[in-house]
């Protein structure tokens, strides 16, 4: 199993920072690749932060209202075939 960082991407020319609106998932949730993990608000718009891989959320490192910057690690996913629900 590999741990993969959830990183804030750079969306556009002027995204120097952004506001972390909130998590849409919590630690322990199983997610698919591309699934929205959180909402991030930039100057222009509010956008979904997609999951970099299918797996299980193992860490959420920022909270609603935090200021984040492109490249910042905000969470982690334990990648791999989704474990059967227990």
């Amino acid at each position: 199993m590999t741990e993969i960082d959830v990183v804030v991407p750079r969306w556009g020319l002027t995204m120097d920072d952004a506001t972390f609106v909130g998590w849409l998932v919590q630690v322990g949730d199983t997610v698919g690749e591309g699934e929205a993990l959180a909402e991030v608000e930039t100057d222009k718009t509010t956008a979904d932060l997609p999951s970099p891989a299918a797996g299980v959320v193992t860490a959420t490192l920022v909270a609603a209202g935090d200021e984040v910057v492109p490249g910042q690690v905000v969470g982690r996913i334990a990648a791999g075939p989704a474990a059967p629900a227990t």
Binding site: G12, L13, T14, T42, D43, K44, T45
Partner: peptide, 10 residues
């Protein structure tokens, strides 16, 4: 509708 190329008219 787009709110400006960089958000100024949002």
């Amino acid at each position: 509708a787009p709110g400006g190329p960089f958000g100024a008219t949002k």
